[in-house]
Amino acid sequence: MAATVSSALAARVRAGSGENACKCYQCKKCSVGCPVAGFADLHPAQIMRCVQIGDLDAALQSKFIWLCTGCETCTTRCPQGIDIAAVMDELRMIAREDGRVRAEAPFAAILELNYRSFRRWGRLYEVELLALDKLKRPKTFMDDVPMGLKMFMKGKINPLPTIGDRGQMKRMAAAADRIVAEKRAQAKADAATPAGGAGGAP
């Protein structure tokens, strides 16, 4: 059967990100300008194709979605005006939501630590992030710690966190979690029903 450019995955991506992957006509401008495509297995246009035809496994297992730097070159150049970087963000969220983050994805762990850090302190606490990451991935100790120490010696790294308005951060994070959880659960349910294709107004 020929692949159909309309899938439950495309609908789910659209519900979460507002981006309609079905508009992509595979010109590959995104892939040509991508700084990290050469280091990955799939390139951005291939990920867009996975979304179109509903190949969730290929999209979530690809190295690419955890190598994307969010540089927005693809988004800037897409002739169809698709925010391709937002589609990559959406696939990361779907991977987490479905408990299907690929085994080799150090960036996923860093983003998670980063996210927890600023929510806890109101601001990003770099020492904590680095320490927790090295506990998880001790083999990478020499990659960053010597440079971190040099930066510490130059007074560029604060040993203690600098703290923002933690009360307001806590309130906002809780409210955003609640609203997003409701919406995503609804979108996932809608996308799973046959009527919930990627169609509708473009």
Binding site: G16, S17, G70, D89, R92, M93, R96, L111, E112, N114, Y115, F118, G122, R123, L124, G164, D165, Q168, M169, A176, D177, I179, V180
Partner: peptide
């Protein structure tokens, strides 16, 4: 407070 950086928009858009 922190602007949320890459970690926020890859985790919780709102």
């Amino acid at each position: 407070e922190c602007c949320g950086n890459t970690a926020a928009h890859a985790t919780n858009r709102l």
